[in-house]
Design a protein around this nucleic acid. Structure first.
Lengths: 343, 343
DNA sequence: TTGTAGGCGTTATCAG
DNA sequence: CTGATAACGCCTACAA
């Protein structure tokens, strides 16, 4: 008996069944039988035999010989925030997956368990190329991958490596400027802007946008959580609008506002330089702008696959997508500060 | 110069670097160097070279020789709904990922474009095992995997294959019964139940639960979208509550109710046999129950990894998790039907 | 203690 | 159209 039972059929088994050679089976199964000039009758016999034995090519063998695994890596630089970043991560993934599926790639998601970038540096190479994202990227790791000629695309702008690294980012600067201008148009003259510490491009870009808005009364606070004392003080100084860079800062801000007894948008306006992917049920839509996450994922995957398939890249290797503004419910017309006394 | 740049390093490359044979590299990398008796000095040299080149074993090659590659597969039988099922898919994925990360596995997500399940399910064998999910599973293919002894775990109950297939499902029957009983307790005597056509376990289980609730005035409608005419007719016949099996049916139902000028929960009550993962902003919380998606993902991954690592399975191979009820905002006390005339 | 050789299932290239 | 044969990258006896 040919193959031992319980092991799956190989091309050799089909060949025997159909009375042909294994090479013929390979040719038939690869879809180009007539191109090579194989008798229709033979093709039929082979196909039948394959069907009968319910043959499927061993993917490991196929990929081994193809020198490509048709795997698209997805690596996240885990953030250190308490909030589950995973939530904001899936929309990107959806976009990547959509394109990968369309172009015949599977996704290899590297789990951020160890967080040890050293190990990651190697594991990432399990895939043919890799989409990277997350603030707090390890530039050393990225540089190393680039040096080795390993194909990567970053989701999010990265300028640390000049034009060496392909990316698909969001135009934070422009969108942020618009947010501030909208607030100004609503009559807000003093605006407090809460930014993250550090110098990640995503942070710097937004800061630049805020400055570029050209609204004079903007004060900046870089750093962590805020409390009711701080917001009360700001309000007392005439601040009528708060702009938080991230979801985390926004959460901190709304908490502080609530503690301080300030309602928004009634007493003050609140905006965010981004959006909230996983809003609490019943929470108001935050004013700000939306990240085209899915589209970023799509374009990143396309860019990467173009590189892998050695296609002539259709577009630039570094792209910034525009972010649609979100009017939201947390910002409204400015109301002259605390002249009314409590309640 | 050894390998061409941009081609991933192989054991042969390391061997050259370390001045040993490729076989030695394999022995060292497989962790049993001292068992075979390799000089510590040699081991060190090999390890260093591997590190320097960021070596990782080619998963295809590993699989071809019949060894594990610590990749956990994830495959979704994409539904054919217009609504993006992906949304309800990520919470499961999050659970799977969490456990995979914790136990040292990376995730291999198999993508299937437009019902090409045959091809995709063949590729699945590149992983050590696979978590499957989605309604509309292809039983034939699952059976094939089982026959070949390929480790799989289904997320969702599957009874088509008896006890051959391990799964982690939700206890739809019990949760559904509770939904109906809650409506009854609110005074609803005539309830219209909209179920999907077909005989998927998830559908049948819920139907069984609805029957088991023991509420006499329940009428069933199996099939697609409903319109305002239908809901109006039901209402006229004294139906005061509607139960939709799925998000899709629920969406159709609320549309029809709006068209018919019926408000819920004021005029009629609405419940769902499940929850809405991606509710529209500002949409009310739908009464029904929650699927413990993340936990299902966790347990499925654990179950599968137990099989892969040949651990003594901690629990049963087929599990049903209970679904916490969700009071929601769409169901309320019954209000005697349309005796009040319009407006 | 280390190297050599055979094989996993497939593709691809030859000369027959 | 068919055999034979050489990769692909890795593992594992078996030799030395």
């Amino acid at each position: 008996m040919g193959r031992s039972r319980s092991s799956r059929p190989r091309q050799a088994d089909i060949a025997r069944e159909a009375g042909v050679s294994q090479a013929t089976v390979s040719l038939v199964m690869n879809g180009k039988p007539e191109a090579v000039g194989i008798a229709p009758e033979t093709v039929r016999r082979v196909r039948e035999a394959a069907e009968r034995l319910s043959y499927v090519a061993n993917p490991a063998a196929v990929r081994l010989v193809g020198k490509r695994n048709r795997l698209l890596g997805v690596y996240t630089f885990a953030a250190t925030f308490p909030v589950d970043v995973r939530d904001s991560y899936y929309p990107f993934l959806a976009g990547v997956e959509e394109r990968a599926a369309g172009r015949g790639y599977d996704l290899l998601m590297f789990t951020a368990s160890s967080g040890a970038h050293a190990d990651a540096l190697a594991r990432v190479r399990l895939a043919d190329g890799c989409v990277l994202f997350g603030r707090e990227a390890s530039i050393a790791m990225i540089e190393r991958l680039l040096d080795d000629g390993f194909p990567i695309v970053y989701i999010g702008r990265r300028d640390e490596l000049g034009d060496r690294i392909p990316y698909v980012g969001a135009d934070y600067a422009r969108a942020s400027a618009e947010v501030v201008r909208r607030l100004a148009a609503l009559g807000h003259e003093r605006i407090a802007y809460l930014r993250e510490p550090g110098d990640q491009p995503s942070t710097e870009d937004r800061a630049r946008g805020v400055r570029a808005a050209g609204v004079p009364g903007v004060r900046v606070r870089a750093g962590g959580r805020v409390d009711s004392g701080w917001v009360r003080a700001q309000h007392a100084e005439g601040v009528t609008a708060f702009v938080a860079e991230t979801v985390e800062l926004h959460a901190s801000l709304t908490g502080a506002l609530a503690d301080a007894g300030l309602r928004h948008p009634r007493d003050v306006s609140v905006a965010m330089l981004g959006d909230d992917v996983a809003p609490a049920p019943g929470a108001p839509v935050v004013s700000g702008f939306a990240l085209p996450r899915r589209e970023m994922g799509r374009q990143a995957a396309d860019l990467l696959i173009d590189m892998l398939d050695e296609r002539p890249g259709q577009g630039p290797r570094q792209r910034l997508l525009t972010c649609p503004p979100v009017a939201g419910e947390t910002a409204g017309p400015a109301r002259r500060a605390p002249l009314e006394g409590p309640e």
